[in-house]
Write a protein that binds this DNA or RNA. Structure first.
Lengths: 252, 252
DNA sequence: CGCGGTGTTGAGACCTGTCAAGACGTGTGG
DNA sequence: CCACACGTCTTGACAGGTCTCAACACCGCG
């Protein structure tokens, strides 16, 4: 007897990725797992370039990414866009909205995207009933902040080449956690223009930087797939140290 | 009958600033206030350039700034330092350490600094007994993350001039909340070199950018004091919008 | 078949960095 | 009281990284 509505079926992949992500950092009991699985109210699909949440908008639910790539974005006066953080399957894209009530940035789909919606009322219920999950989700937003710090650091103190290499290293690790890498690479559905919005560069310079990484045999980006040709040297160029991703399973 | 040890007296200023900061965003009851005031275990003083917490170090307490300026810092291989976020009186500098258990950055005193120490065990007790404070401190780390996002944005999409103007606008608002501004300015005890570490610039370029802001009659930095000469134009240059500081008092 | 989005290339401009030297101020020790 | 050292601030000349603008190639899709 299966009482779960069909829409929840679509969310399974997202929930599985989400639990892998959590369990890479802490234990999650069976009971907690089922509480988490019960949070989903609905799922939705979006086309690329859709704005899912606009800066300043009042929020009453949070978004769990099921599939596709989603970005936190902010524009300057001239209209240049900065991508602040990227979200992939298993990420809560705006769990911070639960306490902030409205966002200081927008949420934009970069690719065809499927998301699951979690009403804040259910988040509230969950954390009231499960103190451990309350801390774990607090941790989860703190982890987002750690990634944000690393991006700030990269923009301030790394060259364009190093920043790009760093971004690729980060993608690899994050995708690996949710089982979406192959040995030597992963699917990277972003355009060079979108990469430039992550890196604080122009699309033209991204193109040239990418060539420079390719010429030196570090990576190859072709047909929306990134191949890592020399992981050791890539990490070195990037000054990459995964500690900021807190890949340690311990009580939070 | 006063049972509070003398060391707690030193923390009063920090706690007052801390409560002003919280109450700018949400209500805090008298009972909650006294629970917060009971968290302090100890206070300490540090000289400029002291590293209070080193990247990767295991944490068992959090630091509430009582006086002085404290920075979250990260270095690149070459040794250039990036300041990721600044903390002033009333800020918890590493409350995120409560869930992260160790930090991905260091904490460094930029000026003579006094801090109050809060054992994680007491934080745990506080949030277990006060669900509302639990959310409010979750909010508080999310607010830090919002500031971090704004810095990322500024580094990626604003010019050196705009970034510097933006930093000054942010300082003004944050200091105003804790009552440390005068009408037209505030005490800014940072060196140009430390400013360059915030802005992802070199000290030489900070000097020139500062001159350009002064020549245009926007600000003047003299004797560790920043005077804002034309707030309207400064905000315009900075593209400053304080929404990201969430200065609204509402249930979190 | 044509069109729009994407990727590529070149030339030149501009912003910011690098290096080096000197000015200024303050605290310390002789 | 002076001499000196050290950190900070300032300035100049030059180098280099990244941006701008413009043109063109490529490709999937209607």
């Amino acid at each position: 007897m299966d009482l779960t509505p069909p829409l929840r079926g679509a969310a399974e992949a997202g929930l599985d990725a989400h639990l892998r992500k959590l369990r890479a950092r802490d234990e999650v009991s069976k009971e907690e797992e089922s509480a988490i699985r019960g949070m989903i109210a609905d799922t939705r699909k979006f086309e690329p370039h859709t704005v899912l949440v606009r800066e300043g908008e009042e929020l009453h639910q949070s978004i769990l990414v099921v599939d596709g790539w989603l970005a936190r974005t902010k524009d300057n006066r001239k209209g240049d866009r900065q991508i602040l953080e990227l979200h992939i399957a298993g990420d809560f894209a705006d769990l911070h909205g639960f306490t902030l009530k409205c966002l200081d940035h927008s949420l934009t789909a970069l690719t065809p995207t499927e998301v699951a919606l979690v009403p804040h009322a259910r988040v509230r219920q969950l954390i009231d009933q499960h103190p451990h999950l309350s801390r774990l989700y607090w941790f989860s937003t703190n982890l987002d902040a750690a990634i944000q710090r690393q991006w700030t650091f990269a923009l301030g103190r790394l060259s364009a080449r190093a920043r790009m290499a760093h971004l690729f290293c980060e993608f690899f690790v994050r995708l690996q956690i949710i089982g979406r890498t192959q040995e030597e690479g992963f699917e990277l559905p972003l355009t060079q223009s979108q990469l430039s919005e992550c890196l604080g560069l122009t699309p033209v310079h991204v193109n040239r930087t990418l060539q420079s990484l390719r010429v030196q045999g570090l990576v190859e980006l072709e047909g929306r797939r990134l191949s890592i040709l020399d992981a050791t040297r890539l990490r070195h160029v990037a000054e990459f140290d995964p500690d900021y991703l807190y890949l340690e399973r311990r009580p939070r």
